[in-house]
Structures are given as C-alpha cells and as structure tokens.
Nucleic acid binder design. Structure first.
Length: 306
DNA sequence: CCACGATCCTGCTAGC
DNA sequence: TGCTAGCAGGATCGTG
C-alpha cells in the first residue's frame, strides 16, 4: 500500500463529491462496528443508531476538513478524518478492512465505513442544523475558496505575532488548511514560514490569500494529494503529489530557483521552504533561525516516491 | 488574551 | 535478521 497523505480541504472535498451521488436519497438501515467509543465523542453507538436508522441522506457537504452528511428531519453527521482516517463506500459483502471503527449500513446493501489505523478520526451526530452550526462556528474560520481575500486574512490574523505557518494551521484563522497546503501556499507566496503574522505587508497578505486559494483549487483539480482510489467511481487516484514544490521535498531542488529545499521544525510540525525564495525579512529574526533545524529525511521517501 | 507543550494513537523506519 | 525506540501529525486541553 503506497503512502497516504493526511486529508486536508481538497481531499475532503473530493470525498464529499464522490459520496454525493451514491448517497443522496439513500436511507440508513443500521449502524455497526463501533469498537472504539472515543470515535463518537457526543453520542453512543446506540444513540447514533436510534437517531439515524430510517433516515435518508439529503446532502453531502464539506466545511473545513469536516465531511458533512445531512439527513432528513434536520439530523446530520460530521466526520473528521484527522491523520489517517478513511471513508470507504463499499458493497456490504466486501470484507471489513482492518481498523474499521464504524459502519453506516445503507439501503441496497451499501456500506459507508470509517477506517482509521490511528484512531484519531471522530464522528459527531447533531439533531438540528443549529447544533451543527454552533459546533462548526467555534472551530472554523472562513472557507478559503469562497470567503478569503487579503482583508479577511488580515482581519483573521489581527495583530498576532506568532509564525504565519503556525497560524495557517489554526482552523479558526482559515478553515481547511493543513501542513502540506500551508507549506505549498507559503512557497507560492514567497513568504518564510517563521515570519511573524503581524510583520506581513499588504502585498504579502494579498499574495498569501491568493496562494492559499490557488494551491487548494489545484489540489481539488488533481483530485487531491492522495494515493487511494477509494470512493472514486472511476478508480482514478489523486495526482497532486506529482506537483508539490516543497512539501516532502527536503534537500531536493526548489522548482523556482534550484536551491535545496529546507526542512525545519516549527512547533511540533515540519515545515518545508526555499531559503532563497522565502526570505525571513522579519525584524527580530534576520537570520531566519526561528525554527530548529533538522536533518533532511532521505529524499527518496516522500510524496515523490513513484 | 496569547503562546506553547503535552496528549491521543499505531504504522513505519532508523538504528542497533 | 530481528527487535525496539522514536517519530509523525490535527486538534484539544492544560499550564504559564
């Protein structure tokens, strides 16, 4: 099995699009397979079964990195795949994959299965649109594809001084951006990841807002940075891994200038950038030593593996 | 209010 | 070759 990328906005969007056609109009018949109660933080398996059995899917949507299943009578389910979670649509007679922690049984012997080796993924149940909205409201900032420009980004960042990369990973600043697309957007905008958010110029904010949209849209167009073919009716895998400029490319040449891509540790996350294209013009940190240097991983093991 | 470390998990890999 | 310690990473929680 080839390596999988952590799902971010484009990957969740592709999942939602793939599920929409087969699921809308279908009814839940039962729920099973809950072997890990933490997966359901706001309900028990019994409550979830009682709430959803007999209900039809009215819409499949996405907000940030949450996959949303809407049902009739105002019920909804929000799925967060976190690090390793997968959502598989399979015929009921397909053998259960290892690490399956929840199965929604639908009419016509169709299963929606949540498979997650690391058990970080979570599934929430809501009884009304306002409950769902309240849940999402406190967790998610604006949607980058429809609600982001330089002004919005500036307002979201406020006068915060933390590293811009760290703040891009904060879902209340902008929803849906994760480690991979944050690195790619910063490279595209030519902004060093450790730059203090309050040091960004108007022009840099404009470039960054545009770059965030562009990398996410490209990711969606390429059907995500994923190697899995699940959910794709035509079996086509995502191809964005072939187009990454810095993420997972430590020590490989920057596609723009040829300089070896740097990898540093920022907070508890790895950041990839080009030290030449992305200058640390911050006042307090002229050397760019804002993060801890780490040895590049073997360059062969990355998203570029064939 | 803000920053940041610890925590949750297990497959994978580096290192012995 | 086989074993094991340590890493990876999104989001939340607790501490300073």
């Amino acid at each position: 099995m080839p390596p999988r990328r952590v799902p971010e906005l484009p990957e969740v969007e592709i999942t939602a699009r793939g599920l929409r056609e087969p699921l809308v109009g279908r009814r839940v018949t039962d729920i099973s397979g809950v072997d890990w109660p933490r997966m359901l933080p706001n309900a028990t398996a019994e409550q979830m079964a009682a709430a959803l059995a007999g209900r039809a899917v009215t819409a499949v949507d996405r907000r940030g990195k949450y996959l949303l299943l809407h049902f009739d009578d105002g019920w909804s389910v929000a799925v967060h795949r976190k690090m390793s979670g997968n959502v598989l649509l399979q015929a009921a007679d397909t053998p259960l994959a290892r690490h399956t922690h929840l199965v929604l049984h639908f009419s016509d012997a169709l299963d929606l299965r949540l498979v997650d080796a690391r058990k970080f993924g979570r599934v929430y149940v809501f009884g009304s649109p306002s409950e769902l909205e309240a849940f999402l409201h406190v967790r998610l900032g604006p949607e980058p594809l429809t609600g982001l420009d330089a002004q919005v980004l500036a307002a979201q960042l406020g006068s915060r001084r933390r590293a811009i990369k760290t703040l891009l990973l904060d879902q209340t600043i902008v929803a849906g951006v994760g480690n991979l697309y944050a690195d790619e957007a910063l490279w595209e905008a030519r902004i060093h990841p450790t730059r203090g958010a309050d040091s960004l110029s108007q022009g840099e904010l404009r470039r960054l807002a545009a770059a965030i949209k562009r990398v996410l849209e490209s990711g969606i167009e390429r059907r995500g940075t994923s190697f899995s073919t699940y959910l794709d009716a035509d079996g086509a895998p995502g191809t964005n891994q072939e187009f990454l400029n810095v993420y997972g490319r430590a020590a490989l040449p920057c596609p723009r200038c040829g300089t070896a891509v740097s990898r540093i540790r920022l907070g508890a996350r790895s950041s990839h950038f080009c030290a030449r294209c992305q200058r640390p013009r911050s006042r307090q940190d002229p050397t760019g030593a804002g993060g801890t240097s780490v040895k590049p991983r073997a360059a062969s093991r990355s998203a570029h593996q064939t």
